[in-house]
Amino acid sequence: MTFKAIINGKTLKGETTTEAVDAATAEKVFKQYFNDNGLDGEWTYDDATKTFTVTE
């Protein structure tokens, strides 16, 4: 399945996608990506659209 992340950061904005077997796996991938890029913020997840949003 394809999962999307919308990034609303102070220094980084945009979208990225990942292929994962479930939402928990996708969340781990996205959180690692955000940690690697120095992002920290509020997380939400919309199961209907398979979209994570992080707002810094």
Score class of each variant (00 low, 15 high):
residue 35 N to D: 09
residue 32 Q to C: 07
residue 22 D to I: 02
residue 15 E to V: 13
residue 44 T to H: 12
residue 9 G to D: 03
residue 45 Y to Q: 00
residue 5 A to I: 14
residue 29 V to I: 14
residue 14 G to I: 15
residue 51 T to W: 02
residue 6 I to R: 05
residue 28 K to L: 11
residue 37 N to I: 15
residue 13 K to G: 07
residue 41 G to E: 03
residue 54 V to Y: 14
residue 40 D to Y: 15
residue 15 E to L: 10
residue 32 Q to N: 07
residue 46 D to S: 04
residue 20 A to I: 03
residue 31 K to G: 02
residue 45 Y to T: 01
residue 25 T to M: 10
residue 24 A to K: 11
residue 55 T to L: 07
residue 50 K to E: 01
residue 30 F to Y: 00
residue 10 K to I: 13
residue 56 E to Q: 12
residue 21 V to N: 09
residue 34 F to G: 04
residue 2 T to W: 13
residue 16 T to P: 03
residue 42 E to D: 12
residue 27 E to I: 09
residue 49 T to I: 05
residue 3 F to G: 02
residue 28 K to D: 04
residue 38 G to C: 10
residue 27 E to S: 05
residue 51 T to N: 00
residue 56 E to L: 15
residue 15 E to P: 05
residue 53 T to S: 06
residue 56 E to H: 07
residue 13 K to Q: 11
residue 8 N to V: 14
residue 9 G to N: 05
residue 37 N to L: 15
residue 16 T to K: 12
residue 31 K to Y: 04
residue 4 K to P: 03
residue 25 T to E: 12
residue 2 T to H: 07
residue 10 K to Y: 11
residue 27 E to V: 07
residue 12 L to K: 08
residue 53 T to G: 02
residue 7 I to N: 02
residue 22 D to H: 02
residue 24 A to Y: 09
residue 26 A to G: 00
residue 27 E to H: 11
residue 5 A to M: 15
residue 39 L to N: 04
residue 7 I to P: 00
residue 34 F to W: 08
residue 7 I to K: 00
residue 3 F to I: 02
residue 30 F to H: 00
residue 18 T to I: 15
residue 40 D to I: 14
residue 20 A to E: 03
residue 32 Q to Y: 05
residue 40 D to E: 13
residue 8 N to I: 14
residue 45 Y to V: 00
residue 23 A to I: 07
residue 52 F to P: 00
residue 42 E to G: 06
residue 30 F to R: 00
residue 43 W to S: 01
residue 40 D to P: 05
residue 41 G to H: 09
residue 2 T to L: 13
residue 16 T to N: 04
residue 12 L to M: 12
residue 35 N to R: 15
residue 12 L to V: 11
residue 21 V to I: 12
residue 9 G to A: 07
residue 14 G to A: 12
residue 38 G to T: 04
residue 28 K to A: 12
residue 45 Y to H: 00
residue 25 T to A: 13
residue 44 T to S: 12
residue 7 I to Q: 02
residue 40 D to Q: 13
residue 47 D to L: 06
residue 48 A to P: 05
residue 19 E to P: 03
residue 41 G to D: 03
residue 48 A to G: 08
